Amino acid sequence: MAVLPIRIMGDPVLHSPASRVDEITDEVRALVDDMFETMDTAPGVGLAAPQVGVPLRIYVYAYVDDEDRPWRGAIVNPELWMRPLEPGDPDPDEEAEGCLSFPGERFPLRRSDEVLVTGTGLDGEKVRIQVSGWRARIMQHEFDHLDGILYVDRLGDGDWKTVQKIARKRGWGRPGAAWLPGVDDLDA
């Protein structure tokens, strides 16, 4: 396994829809192993293949709930269904999100509280996950990456302007911008 560089906002692979995986091969399994290693080193709770420069519809996730129960997996070619969003502004304390592709920052974002994700596991088995709360947020966030959407793309005008200022100041927003977990000193 290897820790892979994580692409930063502005790299074209992050802003384009990813391609479906035709076949789960040893190369796909090795990529997923590397994605877990990268996510754990970062550390993060999810990581999509485009974030490591691979334009495929794959993401991994890992979360430990309030009762110390681990929840970890990989989904290939996921489909996402969600309940309609509750109207209103996001609560900055309860609904703030961060992203390994916009490291060191968090912004409030309203997400659906319940989702259903279906897809395929690494052994070709069907995967069906119905979750709510923080887990639903993780699923929506990672699924967005597969459609070329970063969470900062969903922010309101005021926060979006702040994102643009941060990106300019840090030299992001260009092809090839990346950081390496465990090596680069970034707060993700």
Rank of each mutant, 00 (worst) to 15 (best):
V28Y: 08
E105Y: 12
A177L: 02
H145M: 03
D184W: 00
E79K: 15
P108R: 08
G133P: 07
E37G: 03
I6E: 00
M35L: 02
K165W: 11
Q130S: 09
D159R: 14
D184G: 01
E105K: 12
W172D: 04
R106V: 11
A2G: 06
D65Q: 03
V60Q: 10
P175K: 14
G46M: 06
L47P: 02
A18T: 08
A96L: 05
F36P: 00
G88L: 01
L109E: 04
V45E: 06
E125L: 06
R168A: 13
W172Y: 12
R135H: 05
G158T: 14
Y61M: 11
P175S: 14
R29Y: 02
D65K: 05
D123H: 06
W179Y: 00
E27P: 03
D144A: 05
K161R: 14
G73S: 06
A30D: 12
H141P: 00
R20E: 15
A136N: 08
R135P: 00
A42C: 08
V28K: 08
D184M: 05
E27Y: 01
P87Y: 02
Y61P: 01
V64Y: 07
G53N: 09
F102M: 12
V21P: 03
P92K: 05
R110Q: 00
D89Y: 10
P84R: 14
V131A: 15
S16L: 10
V163A: 03
D144Q: 00
I75R: 08
P17M: 03
I166Q: 06
D185T: 11
N77G: 11
G176M: 09
P103R: 10
G158V: 13
D33W: 04
L85G: 00
I129K: 11
T162M: 07
W81T: 15
R69D: 15
K161E: 14
L4S: 05
L109N: 10
A177S: 13
M35P: 02
S112I: 09
L150N: 04
L47I: 11
R29P: 01
A62I: 04
V115H: 03
H141F: 08
Q140L: 00
P43G: 04
A96Y: 06
R110V: 07
K161Y: 06
A48E: 12
R106Y: 11
V64C: 03
S101L: 02
R69Q: 12
M9R: 14
F102P: 01
D91S: 12
R110M: 15
D185R: 11
G148N: 09
V54F: 07
E27F: 04
D153Y: 04
P108C: 13
P84H: 10
D66Q: 14
K126H: 15
K165Q: 13
K169T: 15
V54K: 15
V152A: 00
A96G: 12
R111P: 11
I75S: 05
L186M: 10
A177E: 04
V21G: 08
K169R: 14
S16E: 13
G148H: 08
W160L: 14
G88W: 01
E37N: 08
K169Q: 10
D66K: 13
P12F: 01
G182T: 08
D187K: 15
D147N: 13
H15Y: 06
P108L: 04
D93W: 15
Q130W: 10
Y63D: 03
D93V: 09
L150I: 05
G171T: 03
K165Y: 02
V127F: 09
S132E: 13
L109A: 10
E142A: 01
E142P: 04
V52T: 05
R170D: 05
T41N: 09
